[in-house]
Protein backbone atom coordinates (compact mmCIF):
# COMPACT_ATOMS: atom_id res chain seq x y z
CA UNK A 1 0.00 0.00 0.00
CA UNK A 2 2.89 2.31 0.88
CA UNK A 3 4.42 1.72 -2.58
CA UNK A 4 1.08 2.53 -4.24
CA UNK A 5 0.91 5.79 -2.26
CA UNK A 6 4.44 6.67 -3.36
CA UNK A 7 3.59 5.89 -7.00
CA UNK A 8 0.49 8.10 -6.76
CA UNK A 9 2.57 10.96 -5.25
CA UNK A 10 5.18 10.67 -8.01
CA UNK A 11 2.56 10.58 -10.77
CA UNK A 12 0.78 13.60 -9.31
CA UNK A 13 4.09 15.45 -9.06
CA UNK A 14 5.00 14.63 -12.68
CA UNK A 15 1.59 15.65 -14.05
CA UNK A 16 1.72 18.90 -12.09
CA UNK A 17 5.18 19.68 -13.46
CA UNK A 18 3.97 18.73 -16.94
CA UNK A 19 1.03 21.10 -16.60
CA UNK A 20 3.22 23.94 -15.31
CA UNK A 21 5.73 23.43 -18.16
CA UNK A 22 3.09 23.35 -20.87
CA UNK A 23 5.50 24.45 -23.62
CA UNK A 24 7.15 21.02 -23.43
CA UNK A 25 3.85 19.22 -23.88
CA UNK A 26 2.87 21.57 -26.65
CA UNK A 27 6.10 20.91 -28.53
CA UNK A 28 5.46 17.15 -28.38
CA UNK A 29 1.90 17.62 -29.69
CA UNK A 30 3.11 19.87 -32.51
CA UNK A 31 5.85 17.39 -33.35
CA UNK A 32 3.20 14.64 -33.66
CA UNK A 33 1.00 16.79 -35.90
CA UNK A 34 3.95 17.75 -38.12
CA UNK A 35 4.91 14.07 -38.42
CA UNK A 36 1.37 13.17 -39.54
CA UNK A 37 1.47 16.03 -42.06
CA UNK A 38 4.82 14.88 -43.45
CA UNK A 39 3.51 11.35 -44.01
CA UNK A 40 0.56 12.75 -45.95
CA UNK A 41 2.89 14.91 -48.08
CA UNK A 42 5.17 11.93 -48.70
CA UNK A 43 2.30 9.74 -49.96
CA UNK A 44 0.73 12.54 -52.01
CA UNK A 45 -2.92 13.01 -52.98
CA UNK A 46 -3.63 9.26 -53.38
CA UNK A 47 -6.43 8.98 -50.81
CA UNK A 48 -6.63 5.18 -51.04
CA UNK A 49 -2.92 4.87 -50.19
CA UNK A 50 -3.32 7.39 -47.36
CA UNK A 51 -6.25 5.43 -45.91
CA UNK A 52 -4.34 2.16 -46.22
CA UNK A 53 -1.33 3.58 -44.38
CA UNK A 54 -3.28 5.62 -41.78
CA UNK A 55 -2.79 3.16 -38.91
CA UNK A 56 0.95 2.90 -39.55
CA UNK A 57 1.37 6.66 -39.82
CA UNK A 58 -0.56 7.22 -36.60
CA UNK A 59 1.50 4.70 -34.62
CA UNK A 60 4.76 6.04 -36.06
CA UNK A 61 3.75 9.55 -35.03
CA UNK A 62 3.17 8.19 -31.51
CA UNK A 63 6.52 6.39 -31.52
CA UNK A 64 8.47 9.45 -32.68
CA UNK A 65 6.68 11.76 -30.26
CA UNK A 66 7.28 9.30 -27.43
CA UNK A 67 11.08 9.52 -27.73
CA UNK A 68 10.84 13.29 -27.41
CA UNK A 69 8.50 13.06 -24.42
CA UNK A 70 10.52 10.33 -22.65
CA UNK A 71 13.88 12.05 -22.86
CA UNK A 72 12.36 15.37 -21.77
CA UNK A 73 10.68 13.66 -18.81
CA UNK A 74 14.01 12.54 -17.38
CA UNK A 75 15.74 15.84 -18.14
CA UNK A 76 13.38 17.31 -15.56
CA UNK A 77 14.65 14.82 -12.97
CA UNK A 78 18.22 15.96 -13.49
CA UNK A 79 17.52 19.67 -12.99
CA UNK A 80 18.92 20.43 -9.53
CA UNK A 81 19.70 16.67 -9.27
CA UNK A 82 16.10 16.03 -8.21
CA UNK A 83 16.41 12.30 -8.97
CA UNK A 84 19.22 12.07 -6.43
CA UNK A 85 16.89 13.73 -3.93
CA UNK A 86 14.31 11.04 -4.62
CA UNK A 87 16.93 8.33 -4.15
CA UNK A 88 17.73 9.79 -0.73
CA UNK A 89 14.10 9.43 0.31
CA UNK A 90 12.78 6.12 1.64
CA UNK A 91 11.22 5.34 -1.74
CA UNK A 92 11.27 1.90 -3.35
CA UNK A 93 13.10 2.05 -6.72
CA UNK A 94 10.08 0.15 -8.03
CA UNK A 95 7.85 3.08 -7.03
CA UNK A 96 10.20 5.48 -8.80
CA UNK A 97 9.98 3.42 -11.98
CA UNK A 98 6.25 2.80 -12.01
CA UNK A 99 5.55 6.42 -11.06
CA UNK A 100 7.59 7.68 -13.98
CA UNK A 101 6.37 5.04 -16.45
CA UNK A 102 2.76 5.71 -15.50
CA UNK A 103 3.06 9.47 -15.93
CA UNK A 104 4.81 8.94 -19.29
CA UNK A 105 1.99 6.62 -20.38
CA UNK A 106 -0.69 9.09 -19.30
CA UNK A 107 1.09 11.87 -21.16
CA UNK A 108 1.26 9.77 -24.37
CA UNK A 109 -2.37 8.73 -23.99
CA UNK A 110 -3.33 12.41 -23.85
CA UNK A 111 -1.86 12.82 -27.34
CA UNK A 112 -4.46 10.41 -28.76
CA UNK A 113 -7.55 12.68 -28.65
CA UNK A 114 -5.53 15.31 -30.54
CA UNK A 115 -3.57 13.26 -33.07
CA UNK A 116 -6.29 10.72 -33.94
CA UNK A 117 -8.81 13.30 -35.29
CA UNK A 118 -5.95 15.02 -37.17
CA UNK A 119 -5.05 11.68 -38.80
CA UNK A 120 -8.71 10.95 -39.62
CA UNK A 121 -8.99 14.30 -41.44
CA UNK A 122 -5.59 14.19 -43.15
CA UNK A 123 -5.87 10.61 -44.38
CA UNK A 124 -9.59 10.84 -45.30
CA UNK A 125 -10.50 7.94 -43.03
CA UNK A 126 -14.19 7.22 -42.55
CA UNK A 127 -14.41 6.93 -38.75
CA UNK A 128 -17.33 7.55 -36.42
CA UNK A 129 -17.13 8.29 -32.69
CA UNK A 130 -17.20 4.57 -31.77
CA UNK A 131 -14.25 3.88 -34.09
CA UNK A 132 -12.33 6.82 -32.61
CA UNK A 133 -12.89 5.50 -29.09
CA UNK A 134 -11.58 2.08 -30.16
CA UNK A 135 -8.51 3.66 -31.76
CA UNK A 136 -7.82 5.67 -28.61
CA UNK A 137 -8.11 2.47 -26.54
CA UNK A 138 -5.57 0.71 -28.74
CA UNK A 139 -3.39 3.83 -28.68
CA UNK A 140 -3.40 3.57 -24.86
CA UNK A 141 -2.14 -0.01 -25.06
CA UNK A 142 0.56 1.05 -27.54
CA UNK A 143 1.53 4.00 -25.32
CA UNK A 144 1.90 1.64 -22.35
CA UNK A 145 4.07 -0.69 -24.43
CA UNK A 146 6.32 2.17 -25.50
CA UNK A 147 6.53 3.87 -22.09
CA UNK A 148 7.60 0.80 -20.13
CA UNK A 149 10.94 0.14 -21.90
CA UNK A 150 11.16 3.81 -22.89
CA UNK A 151 11.23 4.92 -19.25
CA UNK A 152 13.92 2.36 -18.47
CA UNK A 153 16.12 3.42 -21.39
CA UNK A 154 15.49 7.11 -20.74
CA UNK A 155 16.74 6.55 -17.17
CA UNK A 156 19.81 4.70 -18.47
CA UNK A 157 20.71 7.36 -21.02
CA UNK A 158 19.53 10.47 -19.17
CA UNK A 159 23.00 11.49 -18.00
CA UNK A 160 24.61 10.96 -21.40
CA UNK A 161 25.21 13.77 -23.82
CA UNK A 162 24.22 11.44 -26.68
CA UNK A 163 20.84 10.61 -25.13
CA UNK A 164 18.87 11.94 -28.10
CA UNK A 165 20.60 9.43 -30.39
CA UNK A 166 20.92 6.51 -27.98
CA UNK A 167 17.33 6.45 -26.74
CA UNK A 168 15.72 5.70 -30.14
CA UNK A 169 18.55 3.29 -31.02
CA UNK A 170 17.82 1.23 -27.90
CA UNK A 171 14.06 1.65 -27.89
CA UNK A 172 12.99 1.17 -31.51
CA UNK A 173 14.23 -2.43 -32.04
CA UNK A 174 12.70 -3.53 -28.73
CA UNK A 175 9.25 -2.14 -29.41
CA UNK A 176 8.78 -3.75 -32.84
CA UNK A 177 6.17 -6.19 -31.43
CA UNK A 178 4.20 -3.28 -29.97
CA UNK A 179 4.51 -1.41 -33.24
CA UNK A 180 3.29 -4.40 -35.27
CA UNK A 181 0.47 -5.25 -32.89
CA UNK A 182 -0.84 -1.71 -32.65
CA UNK A 183 -0.60 -0.99 -36.40
CA UNK A 184 -2.44 -4.22 -37.23
CA UNK A 185 -5.11 -3.68 -34.58
CA UNK A 186 -5.74 -0.02 -35.51
CA UNK A 187 -5.79 -0.91 -39.23
CA UNK A 188 -8.48 -3.52 -38.52
CA UNK A 189 -10.53 -0.96 -36.57
CA UNK A 190 -10.24 1.64 -39.33
CA UNK A 191 -10.55 -0.66 -42.35
CA UNK A 192 -12.91 -3.35 -41.06
CA UNK A 193 -12.28 -6.75 -39.54
CA UNK A 194 -14.00 -9.39 -41.69
CA UNK A 195 -11.86 -12.26 -40.34
CA UNK A 196 -12.27 -11.30 -36.65
CA UNK A 197 -8.54 -10.84 -36.05
CA UNK A 198 -8.78 -7.73 -33.89
CA UNK A 199 -9.01 -9.55 -30.58
CA UNK A 200 -5.86 -11.63 -31.30
CA UNK A 201 -3.79 -8.53 -32.07
CA UNK A 202 -5.19 -6.74 -29.03
CA UNK A 203 -4.30 -9.68 -26.80
CA UNK A 204 -0.80 -9.77 -28.31
CA UNK A 205 -0.41 -6.06 -27.62
CA UNK A 206 -1.64 -6.49 -24.06
CA UNK A 207 0.69 -9.46 -23.49
CA UNK A 208 3.72 -7.44 -24.59
CA UNK A 209 2.63 -4.61 -22.29
CA UNK A 210 2.57 -7.00 -19.33
CA UNK A 211 6.01 -8.41 -20.23
CA UNK A 212 7.57 -4.98 -20.68
CA UNK A 213 6.07 -3.50 -17.52
CA UNK A 214 7.22 -6.46 -15.43
CA UNK A 215 10.74 -6.79 -16.83
CA UNK A 216 11.47 -3.06 -16.93
CA UNK A 217 10.31 -2.66 -13.32
CA UNK A 218 12.77 -5.34 -12.19
CA UNK A 219 15.65 -3.98 -14.29
CA UNK A 220 15.12 -0.38 -13.21
CA UNK A 221 16.23 -1.18 -9.65
CA UNK A 222 19.64 -2.21 -11.01
CA UNK A 223 19.85 0.82 -13.31
CA UNK A 224 19.21 3.18 -10.41
CA UNK A 225 21.53 1.43 -7.97
CA UNK A 226 24.39 1.05 -10.44
CA UNK A 227 23.95 4.65 -11.50
CA UNK A 228 24.91 6.05 -8.09
Amino acid sequence: MRVLGQIATLVRKDLLLEWRGRTRGLSVVLFGIVTLLLFSFAVGPDSAALRAGAAGFLVLALLLSSTLALSEGFRLEHENHALEGLLLAPVEPMALYYGKALSNTLFLILLAPILTPVAVILYAVDAGPATLVQVIGLWALAAAGLSAPGTLFAAMTSRLRSQDVLLPLLLFPLVVPVLLGSVKAIALVLGGDPMGQLSSWTVLLGAFDVIYWTLSGVLFTHVVEEGV
Binding site: G5, Q6, L16, H81, E84, L86, A89, P90
Partner: peptide, 25 residues
Protein backbone atom coordinates in the same frame (compact mmCIF):
# COMPACT_ATOMS: atom_id res chain seq x y z
CA UNK B 1 21.41 18.45 2.69
CA UNK B 2 23.73 19.02 -0.20
CA UNK B 3 24.80 22.04 -2.22
CA UNK B 4 22.54 20.39 -4.80
CA UNK B 5 19.05 21.54 -3.92
CA UNK B 6 17.15 18.43 -5.17
CA UNK B 7 14.18 20.74 -5.83
CA UNK B 8 11.75 20.77 -8.74
CA UNK B 9 11.64 24.31 -10.07
CA UNK B 10 8.01 23.92 -11.16
CA UNK B 11 6.66 23.00 -7.71
CA UNK B 12 5.80 25.57 -5.06
CA UNK B 13 7.46 25.52 -1.63
CA UNK B 14 4.34 24.03 -0.07
CA UNK B 15 3.93 21.37 -2.77
CA UNK B 16 7.58 20.42 -2.32
CA UNK B 17 7.07 19.81 1.40
CA UNK B 18 3.94 17.80 0.69
CA UNK B 19 5.79 15.58 -1.81
CA UNK B 20 8.61 14.96 0.71
CA UNK B 21 6.14 14.14 3.48
CA UNK B 22 4.15 11.73 1.31
CA UNK B 23 7.23 9.99 -0.06
CA UNK B 24 8.60 9.65 3.45
CA UNK B 25 5.32 8.12 4.56
Amino acid sequence: VSHRSYLYDGLTAFETLRVWARLGG
